[in-house]
Each structure stands twice: as C-alpha cells, then as structure tokens.
Amino acid sequence: MLVLGIESSCDETGIALVRADGAGVPVLLSHALHSQIEMHQAYGGVVPELASRDHIRRVLPLTQQVLDEAGQTLADVDVVAYTRGPGLAGALLVGAGVACALGAALGKPVLGVHHLEGHLLSPFLSADPPEFPFVALLVSGGHTQLMRVDGVGRYEILGETIDDAAGEAFDKSAKLMGLGYPGGPALSRLAEQGDPAAFKLPRPLLHSGNLDFSFAGLKTAVMTQAKKLGDGLEPRKADLAASTQAAIVEVLLKKSITALQRTGLRRLVVAGGVGANKALRSQLNAVCAKAGIRVHYPELHLCTDNGAMIAMAGAMRLQSGLQQATRAYAFDVKPRWPLDSL
C-alpha cells in the first residue's frame, strides 16, 4: 500500500510517500519540504493569507518531485492522506482540497490525519523506532503535552499547557530580545554562547504536583528582565537567552521524568519542533541513560512539520484498523482539534 501524505497546516508545505506492507512499520520512500520562513521574516511571524497562497503554488510541484524520486506515478498511489487539523484554516483547506481532488480524479480513497498524531508517531520514521507503550513529550509550536501512548489511537493525556506552550515561550522570548523570526531556533543558537545561570528566571508549575505546564509567566519574567537591562541588554543577550532556555528545558525534563515514574514506563518519545533543541536532547539523554530509560526522537530534519509524518500516521492508522480511508470527497478541516478526541 502506497500512501501519499500532504501537510499544509501552517508555514511548511510537505509531501511524502510511504509504503506500508503487512503489520511492519511503514517505510518512507521519499519526501520533499518547502519552508516559508524567508517569506514571513519581513512580517515577524506567519501571515495566514500568504501562507495559504504559497501552499497552492508548492503542493503539486512537490508532489511530482516526491513521485519522481520514488520512481512512482500518481496511478500507483493507493491512499492520499492529508492534514485535517489543527492549524490555520486557510492553509489546511489547501491541502485538504488538493488531496480530495486527487482522490476523486484517481478514484482512490482519502484520509484526514491529525497533525499532532503525525508528530507523535514521527519517531517511527527514525533508524531507532520506539515500541509501544511509551510516555510521549509532544512539544510543537503551539502545543506542550505529556501523554501515555499504548498504541496507535490509544492516547491518555497526562498533562498539558494551561497557557503558552514551550515553543511559544521560545518564540515570544526571542522576540522580546529582538532576535527576529523564527525566534526559537535563534534563541537556542544564541544560548550556546551564554551563561544559563546568569539570570534567576521562574520555573512555572515545576513543583505543582501535577504534570501540567505554564510558560506565560516565564515570558513575562523575560520581558521584565529585558526592560530592566534597557540599553545594557545587548551585551547580556546571550546570557538571557541561555537562562531562558535553561528554565524551559528544566521544566520539560523534570515533568517528563515524573511522568515516567508515575506510569512505570521505561521508554520516552520526544516529538515536535522543540524536540530538535540540543540542550533538551542532551539533558534528557543524560538523565534517562542514568535511569535506564530509552529515549526516542524523530530525525532532526523531521522534527518540524513535514509530509512524512502525515503519510506515516495515515499508514499506521490504516494498518491498525482504527480508521478506513474514504471515497467520499466532501471535506472539512478542524483548525482546533484536541488529540484526545480521536
């Protein structure tokens, strides 16, 4: 079974082709990705209308590129999977519309996929795929969640953010420091030159007794510190970046370890864009190695939004029998779609 995946939830157009045979882990044959970062930099953030228009321009050429690289044609595709939500409504509609049009034209079924489930299952694309069950730390741009994962579609939320997500804390703090867009990666790079203990910043909900997260207060503390430094911010910017990153990473690390202890599980999966953060990976690896816990990540180039994770999630749902692809080509999208509602 060949599954074509289309991702268009925000500012990346991703296309991929996976082969799923039997009960084994699907195999990625090819994928292509176009990032809109350069286009949105002038505005300091994603402009939804521009994002949607760019998806329209990119999706079909990228699809042809992926098919060519895999030595396949559209006629060979068995299922077209696409991101149904969550995300920007206009951007989602582009991917959904193209997927359903392709399905109708080819007489092939289509399948709407949850964007966060794509991130959650993306480590199965790596050279060291996990095994169920595991605890998952999902840290994408607008979401921070800890969950118990017992199988495809079998998710229990253990804790989640009550305000800003970790990715938003990175991005908003970077903006306060004048680091531009995208802020998170810029802050992480600058943090490598700074002292993580230079500023005493809060670790919200670190001792709350539950597994929820809150990063809005940290962002406010960064803003307060930046204002206090005033003209002296520039020479201390690396220290402030390092201290901000240290606060975020410590909360993510300790909550993840607590989740593992409470569930009794010995395997941790980290997925989403923040999962590419070097400090987070380094500290998690060290702590988990000492405790005898296996940690799994997506490949670095598959941490951000991509078509491979959508094709993979679609293929794994079909293999599990949880969902059937459909030849009903009327479609809708879900800009807001809680993962635990699947």
Rank of each mutant, 00 (worst) to 15 (best):
K278S: 09
E117V: 02
T63L: 11
G118N: 12
V333I: 05
D340E: 04
P123K: 06
A23Y: 07
G118M: 12
G44W: 07
Y181V: 09
A20M: 13
Q323W: 09
D76A: 08
C10Q: 13
L137I: 15
A99H: 05
A308T: 08
I157P: 01
L60Q: 08
T63F: 00
K278C: 05
H301A: 15
A169P: 09
D78G: 15
V222N: 12
F134Q: 06
V25H: 07
G292H: 10
L146F: 04
L17A: 02
K255S: 00
L29N: 15
M1Y: 14
L74K: 10
S208R: 09
L280F: 08
Y297M: 06
V94Y: 04
L268V: 12
R189Q: 10
L17W: 00
S320D: 04
S282R: 09
G217S: 11
R262L: 08
A328C: 10
L187D: 04
A16F: 02
S208Y: 08
A191G: 15
L229Y: 03
V66K: 00
M177V: 01
Q324C: 04
A247I: 03
P48A: 01
E168D: 03
T161H: 09
R203E: 05
V222E: 04
L268N: 02
T244P: 15
K237C: 02
A279E: 11
L28G: 06
T263R: 11
D76M: 00
K108S: 02
V135Q: 01
E117W: 11
L342I: 13
A99E: 02
E160G: 13
Y43R: 00
I293K: 07
Q323E: 15
H119M: 15
S122Y: 13
V274P: 05
Q145R: 06
M316H: 09
S52D: 13
I310M: 15
